[in-house]
């Protein structure tokens, strides 16, 4: 695996900044499950991780804190 460039989203000091980007501009769908799916799409693309079905759920993806927690696990 090539070394990650210093500014990559997955670098520890960058994760929060990249999450900030997502929350700065989004269009909520009005359905918590669909919003969780939309968040999953962003997270998987921006951070290069793959979530399980159980994780694509409001319990894990509703709100910035929950997402941050999930990412800490995946990027460890």
């Amino acid at each position: 695996m090539p070394s990650r460039p210093p500014d990559a989203p997955t670098a520890p000091h960058r994760v929060d900044a990249v999450l900030d980007e997502f929350y700065a501009l989004r269009t909520p769908s009005g359905d918590p499950v669909l919003d969780a799916i939309a968040t999953a799409i962003f997270v998987e693309d921006a951070f290069g991780v793959t979530l399980s079905d159980a994780e694509i759920d409001p319990a894990h993806l509703a709100g910035r804190d929950a997402v941050r927690h999930l990412l800490t696990r995946h990027l460890a």
Partner: peptide
């Protein structure tokens, strides 16, 4: 640009 600055999740022209 990074891709997420064009398409942020499903948010187009971010």
């Amino acid at each position: 640009l990074p891709a997420r600055h064009k398409l942020s999740g499903l948010e187009e022209k971010y």
